[in-house]
Computed example of a mutant assay.
Amino acid sequence: MYTEQCSGVEIMGVQERRARQKENIREEILDAARALFVKEGYERVSIRKIAEKIEYAPGTIYLYFEDKAAILERICEETFSKLAQKMHAINADPSNPLDGLRRGLRTYVQFGVDNPNHYIVAFVQAKQIPRDAQPKAGERCFDNLRTAVRRCIEAGQLNCEDVEEIAQALWAGVHGVTTLLITCSFPFIEQNRLIDRVVHILIEGIRKR
């Protein structure tokens, strides 16, 4: 009986190690692909290039992902999911809706500048993914923004009641400054000052007086 129990524990240990090893390889593939997509552009990167970067045979990549598009989709899904979680946590706060919206916009920009490769791949290169195959987490991110805007409207804090118009305008604003901070070598003022000023201008443009 004791021997059987030990054997069972050993088998579970081996299975867990194999699962961890597979997960580690999968993450290596995603990290390598993300870096290459940013550096060379999605269209110029091949499965072979990804494999060479992590010193695996190309066939190994296909054990984890069907093709390059599947890798891009997975990168985007994970990035959108992380951002959606942060935005949802802000919406869950029952305090002043307008303050929550302001924090949400600030969080969005900070997420991008803290994770530049993730952001560029998910928000710039994701256009390579067909519309009907876009990660659902991306839509959840935007739904969180819509929810924040709707709460402000219901609280009588905005000068416009078109949720979609305001949400898209706000996203255009924060996406613009995020992309510039990540990709542009312009001598911007101190980063936090710039982000705060952009968010302030966006909020003041829609706040009811």
Score class of each variant (00 low, 15 high):
M1Y: 03
Y2S: 12
T3G: 00
T3S: 11
E4D: 12
E4L: 12
C6K: 14
A19E: 15
E27K: 14
A33Q: 10
A35M: 09
K39P: 00
G41W: 11
Y42W: 04
E43W: 05
R44L: 02
A51H: 04
Y56G: 00
P58H: 02
T60I: 13
I61P: 10
Y62N: 14
E73S: 14
I75R: 10
E77C: 10
K82P: 00
I90Y: 03
P94V: 02
S95A: 07
N96R: 10
G100T: 01
R102K: 15
Y108E: 01
Y119K: 01
I120G: 00
I120F: 09
A122T: 07
Q125M: 15
R131F: 10
K136F: 07
G138N: 03
D143M: 13
R146A: 00
V149T: 05
R150G: 01
C152Q: 08
C152H: 06
C152R: 03
A155M: 05
Q157G: 07
E161M: 12
V163M: 05
V163G: 05
V174W: 02
F186L: 10
F188A: 06
F188M: 10
I189M: 09
I195D: 03
I195K: 01
I195M: 07
D196R: 07
R197L: 11
V198S: 06
I201M: 11
K208M: 04
R209L: 08
